[in-house]
Write a protein that binds this DNA or RNA. Sequence first.
DNA 1: TGTAGCATGTAAGCCGTTACATGATTGA
DNA 2: TCAATCATGTAACGGCTTACATGCTACA
Lengths: 196, 196
Amino acid sequence: MGDVSQGLSTTSYALLGLLALDGDPSSSLTGYELKQRADRTLRFYWVSPAMSQVYTELERLTGHGFVEATEERSGRRTSQHYRLTADGRAELHSWLVDADADFPVLKHPVALRLLMGGLVDRERMAQHLQRYLDQLQERTQELAGVRAWLGDAEALQYPAMVAEWGLDYYASETEIVTRLVDRLATLPPPDGSAAG
Amino acid sequence: MGDVSQGLSTTSYALLGLLALDGDPSSSLTGYELKQRADRTLRFYWVSPAMSQVYTELERLTGHGFVEATEERSGRRTSQHYRLTADGRAELHSWLVDADADFPVLKHPVALRLLMGGLVDRERMAQHLQRYLDQLQERTQELAGVRAWLGDAEALQYPAMVAEWGLDYYASETEIVTRLVDRLATLPPPDGSAAG
DNA sequence: TGTAGCATGTAAGCCGTTACATGATTGA
DNA sequence: TCAATCATGTAACGGCTTACATGCTACA
């Protein structure tokens, strides 16, 4: 049973986790609903996979026996509802317990541009950072909405903790970038290196 | 010439940027050296591509005319040294100026596990977080080394800024996670939800 | 003599995206 | 009746990794 324990991608486990988190154990979700859950939480500190990827993963997980589908019908429209199996729950549990979590990977296009700040004028770099600050604010509001929606129920205390972690992170990032903008403004003149 | 301006991946631009940053404009790097530069800086806020990927990108960039290779020979060993072309510099510049930078993507396996913290016992989660704190400290030391190595030369002030950004981020993350560990310790009992 | 580092590549394959294709249901 | 949302998939392809393969050079 447990011999395929290393075969799943992290995204697979993430989706398995979303199914496990969804209230009572007998509840089931469509691929579409799962994608919505992912958009709501997963995307802030992992990725929200594309719809097509969600369906692909659900099929893979079904093949492993970690989820099972039941076809439901309303009118002439059928949809697959997926539910975590006991095997799936065990697999998820052993992943949570065993695996050495990788160090987080940050793909930060803004930092990447700042690295090469010497190639463009300061104003332009400041604009990039300013735009990033705006985006950070948007994101913060979105995540604050998620946090509020999670409420204070004990069943959701871990998701709530993660959401707060994200909010703390955004706050810190906002501070850092604000300081960077100030610092850019008081930088010594760029000595004309911007030319090719 | 400029009609392929949207064709490069961010990693390509990152490598182009490393070539541009490498001291005097006439300097050139081997793929191997470029990979070392990437390991030193890029990996903290982007990714350090695999060797094979570095060579692939260099070939692609050569095809676009953004870098050019010269074969150098020492003993009976030959190696390709790559240098940014004027076109490459222009391409990089227009990317720095034009492109709307994407919002950063964070792939955070530790946060992902904490999300499902309710499925395992608190001790286990605390151990994950503690291990993450240790890794953060290692990373901080590595990045502090990079920051020191960059020095205070004006030519490297932007890379230095980015390194400091990273250090601030690690410091903030360390604080947040430390608080989380404390909070886990004082959490109400897990009410036995860990069973299947 | 042998190992670590320098240096370059090819092949296979996974993960994930975008684009495309289809059709039902709800509500304005 | 039209648009938005629900719902499900396939095809093509890009980016990146691991594993494999090769050979030189410096040094202990």
